[in-house]
Amino acid sequence: MLHQELRLSIMSFLANVEWANFKKLIEVTQASKGNLSVQITKLQGAGYIKVRKSFQNNYPLTECRITPKGREALEKYVSDIKKLLNI
């Protein structure tokens, strides 16, 4: 699940903040709206992130935050990579 560039970018960013909105994730990952939306749905489906949708001044607002399960998965992924690279 995490061995995909955009999903890993989203997870790595969210692991270091409390929450980020959709606009911020586009800015940091440089991804297209469509692609980001698809990957966010996949991460949400896996239970790695929580998504809260609301409206602000009639504009849709999507806030994402990492879940404990997602944090654990990211930590395991990093540790597996370190083992592979002998770091």
């Binding site: 890993l8 960013f13 690279l85």
Partner: peptide
């Protein structure tokens, strides 16, 4: 995706989050 690329992504995103002040 190459393994080293993964570490680069993680590092880049950590750096981005530090800029979010």
């Amino acid at each position: 995706m190459e393994t080293t690329k993964s570490l680069e992504i993680i590092e880049a995103m950590m750096s981005e989050s530090r800029k979010s002040l």
